[in-house]
Design a protein around this nucleic acid. Structure first.
Lengths: 340, 340
DNA sequence: TTGTAAGCGTTATCAC
DNA sequence: GTGATAACGCTTACAA
């Protein structure tokens, strides 16, 4: 087996340069002559050098670590978000330390402390348990995605516009009655905008509408049951063409399945729109029209905001943002088979 | 704002102890008197100490980092795998550095080098681009999950048993003709076992069968097209009750959708079994019977194998495994509505 | 039970 | 263009 790890000292001895010069070879090669660069390059090869970034971090303070706290990866939405975040490595070369919080606040605080101990330069928060005020108190660059973010930077989907888009399409489809199905959503959550957008659009167009909220429980089975009941309820309602806008694609798919099992195929008296553009929307028995969140764009914006703050911290006299920055990303309506 | 970061030196000065004692407070508190522990605890609080694990790692060589390379997070299978891996933090306190490779070999090699530079103690590989021989050459503890792993430790589903289970169920359902649908799978991939298990079981029971393989392209749309064609082909076949076993739940769902659109509801002359127990299996228009991979158990085994190797590396005279260890996890048949 | 001093493998600050 | 030398913040013999 090979012996110990080879360090700058070994390279220096081997090449008759100093450690400083070896360091320069990596960080500022132009300051060496071409031939000396070559000498060192050879030595590296010969001795089988393996760089140690931890030592580098200790010396220069730049860990290039970003921490991520995500509620779970069961929902495709979070998985795809994480996917996009990790993919930014190619542009920015930040390394990501990832934690899954499962919505436990205390656990989450432990994670943050652990992350701080590893000298992360920034933190991306997707979970909901801590308030933005608590997050801000850590005095580390932070960006949140699609959650309450009064006291820190954040990006979220323009949920209001999403609601408007979905509702407008249903109206263009000549639906005579509009129905929105959602869980009980507090007003300070970004997703509340979907409800508001729906309601405002119905009012503005003078179309009869109804908002049905329910507690869908925390299992898929209970969601199926609840939506089944709501479907029966809607079947009883007046309206020859019902436009149903659901809070997400999972709900939309369950609703569509109820409809198909009742009618055998997609009937002309229903139009359905979901939200998220998750895989289930295209995989459904009839591909579902949905409001697609632009996840890639959201992540790109989040990274911009984070990098902005991180760069600032590296200056000799960091001047943190006076006000947190917030960005809204407009979603895109994706028309498929459950609307005209 | 607060000034510089406080270090052991500051705590030492403040408490009139040495840095060594402060270090001991963290790593071996019992070696201090209770009152001195208290003194130090107070000082920590007063000065607002924030630990630096990077310095610790540099000094003691234990990074507590594990690297993960996953092909993507688009497929729920990988997302759930990652989810389970990250969740092991609670038991073992290893921190995870995660990379998404998108199946590019060169990229992947860069990732591994980066991970080595951060002194990871071990590596978990889910991607397929590098051979296990190449992986083994890195001389770092490795475990692979559900992939070729001749030269490194690995865990995988007992795909053969899965194939047997699925096929046996279809036989018990009195199917007169069995059909297996799969992509072109090389024999050295663990998933090939599904085909073998199907075939052997058909032969053993003397049931007419057919194996249909195809290139499904790399998009969902092309998969739908291909499976639609295969469905038409199967419709032409003899057999009053056809048992169809598909390589995964996505295929099974598409096949089921084809059936429903043809028949209006689930007809008695078809029985369907998928593989993976991914969300689509339960979310389908009729919940799909499937062979469920025990992801949690696989991850647990993977961590065991990895920790085994990592512990060995910490010994004064590491004796690496003579032979890589491999584990097979038996999958579980989950009966739902597409079988009796 | 506690302290001294030499690392760990880099980078940063001055010199020359 | 190159080199000494002191950090960076913690651990670990070896002493006492």
């Amino acid at each position: 087996m090979k012996s110990k790890k080879v360090t700058f000292a070994d390279i220096a001895a081997y090449t008759n340069f100093s450690k400083t010069t070896i360091s320069r070879y990596f960080n500022n090669p132009d300051s060496l002559t071409i031939e000396n660069q070559q000498k060192i390059a050879n030595a590296l090869e010969e001795l089988g050098y393996q760089e140690n970034k931890l030592a580098k971090v200790l010396a220069n303070g730049k860990s290039e670590f970003i921490g991520i706290i995500v509620p779970n990866l069961y929902l495709h939405y979070y998985a795809e978000m994480l996917n996009q975040i990790l993919s930014t490595y190619r542009q920015h070369h930040y390394k990501f330390l990832v934690f899954v919080s499962d919505n436990d606040k205390e656990t989450e605080q432990n994670y943050i402390n652990e992350l701080l101990a590893y000298k992360i330069e920034g933190l991306i928060v997707l979970s909901h348990t801590m308030t933005s005020k608590e997050l801000a108190a850590y005095h580390v660059p932070i960006v949140t995605i699609e959650r309450e973010s009064e006291h820190v930077c954040g990006v979220s989907t323009d949920n209001y516009m999403g609601g408007v888009q979905a509702t407008s399409l249903l109206i263009k489809n000549h639906c005579s009655k509009l129905i929105h199905i959602n869980s009980n959503t507090p007003k300070y959550i970004p997703a509340y905008g979907r409800i508001k957008g729906f309601e405002d659009t119905c009012k503005a167009n003078n179309i009869p509408y109804e908002i049905i909220t329910a507690d869908f429980g925390d299992s898929y089975a209970s969601t199926v049951t609840q939506i089944g009941l709501i479907f029966q309820q809607i079947e009883q309602m007046d309206g020859e063409k019902k436009g149903v806008f659901l809070a997400n694609d999972t709900y939309a798919n369950i609703f569509l399945n109820s409809v198909i099992r009742q009618y055998g195929s997609f009937p002309p008296n229903y139009r359905i729109v979901g939200f998220d553009d998750s895989p289930i929307a295209s995989e459904a028995i009839y591909p579902i029209t949905t409001v697609g969140q632009q996840i890639e764009k959201m992540v790109q914006n989040a990274m911009e905001l984070l990098i902005l703050q991180m760069e600032e911290m590296k200056k000799r006299v960091p001047k943190p943002l006076r006000e947190p920055i917030h960005r809204q990303i407009t979603p895109i309506l994706i028309r498929r088979d459950t609307t005209d």
